[in-house]
């Protein structure tokens, strides 16, 4: 109990430090790095949210992409205000994920994973074929209002933080307990009168909403989107963030996203070596730290406290 309280204080301090940096820092590159990290953190926490019910949702990539395309269309084609563009990304993800879930959530495990994988790829192919969506080259010139420019990183940080907090609070509630129960043994949950498919649908919709809003933010931060940005690789990388940071709690996913986002940027100048080193980092951390950095840190802490006692 006490260590959980201490953990919350550390998280709050870290968040405050990053926020201060987002407000005060004037280095544009670092600001962008911060925003990319925030987006990736939402993706990782969103993917992990469905792992709570035991499902690997590769559709995370599709819902992220829908949010991005919806946001881009709202801004560039319909001239809607920026907040509405953000909301529209989340709402579209809610609508589509509800339909997708109703059809697919009766499957589970590898079957659901494959269906959601296929869904992400089909949606991506649709972008490439539809002229109105820019086809293969995508949509360019997606800008937030100019007045927001100096505040974009703060806004991104707060919005992504809010989405992550929402998913964290869901996990801590009785709803989160039911999620875990479904992961443990869905038949038991069914026998005490809880509709498993319905709860999984709720889980999918909450995660997709978060990822959809993040997608719309993505479009306005990168200013350019194309179909290739939203392939199955998006959730695959998110899975790597989760596994490297540690999948025991939300902070693991956030830390993993932060480290790998920065690492990817550092390796970018290395040409084809980039992917080799990136993959190597993932394999190495899986071998050395099977329960992620957070799990490794906890073990180290325990080792120290035992040494002292």
């Amino acid at each position: 109990m006490r260590s959980a309280r201490a953990g919350q204080i550390v998280v709050a301090l870290a968040a405050a430090a990053v926020l201060a940096f987002a407000v005060l820092g004037d280095d544009e590159y670092t600001q962008h790095l911060l925003m990319w990290t925030a987006l990736n953190a939402v993706l990782a926490v969103g993917l992990r949210f469905m792992l709570l019910v035991g499902e690997t949702n590769i559709g995370t990539g599709a819902f992220y992409g829908m949010g991005a395309y919806m946001g881009a269309i709202c801004t560039t084609k319909w001239g809607l205000p920026f907040p509405l563009a953000l909301l529209a990304g989340g709402l579209l993800a809610i609508v589509v994920s509800t339909g997708f879930g109703l059809v697919t959530l009766r499957t589970k495990g590898p079957y659901f994973m494959l269906i959601s994988f296929a869904f992400t790829e089909v949606v991506r192919l649709i972008y490439t074929r539809v002229e109105w969506l820019g086809g293969n080259s995508g949509i360019i010139g997606i800008f937030p209002p100019q007045a927001l420019d100096p505040w974009m990183s703060v806004l991104t940080f707060l919005l992504c933080g809010g989405l992550i907090l929402m998913m964290y609070l869901c996990e801590q509630s009785n709803l989160g307990r039911v999620f875990r129960a479904i992961q443990n043994n869905d038949a038991v949950v069914e026998t005490v009168g809880i509709d498993v498919v319905q709860i999984k649908l709720v889980c999918l919709v909450i995660a997709s909403f978060s990822v959809g809003i993040a997608g719309s933010l993505h479009a306005h931060i990168y200013n350019v989107i194309s179909p290739g940005d939203f392939s199955y690789l998006v959730p695959v990388f998110a899975l790597a963030y989760i596994k490297i940071g540690g999948d025991a709690n939300v902070m693991g996913a956030v830390i993993g996203a932060a480290i790998l986002t920065v690492l990817a940027q550092m390796l970018q100048g290395m040409g084809s070596l980039e992917h080799v080193l990136f993959g190597g980092a993932i394999v190495a951390s899986m071998l050395v730290l099977p329960d992620g950095l957070l799990g490794g840190g906890r073990r180290l802490l325990r080792l120290f406290s035992r040494g002292r006692a």
Binding site: R177, V178, R180, A181, N184, N185, V188, V189, T191, V192
Partner: peptide
């Protein structure tokens, strides 16, 4: 034996009572 193996005894029984 139908259990939620990774959860506590408390949470196991709570899941049973949740709907009722």
């Amino acid at each position: 034996g139908s259990l939620l193996r990774e959860m506590t005894v408390h949470d196991n029984i709570l899941i049973g009572a949740l709907r009722a």
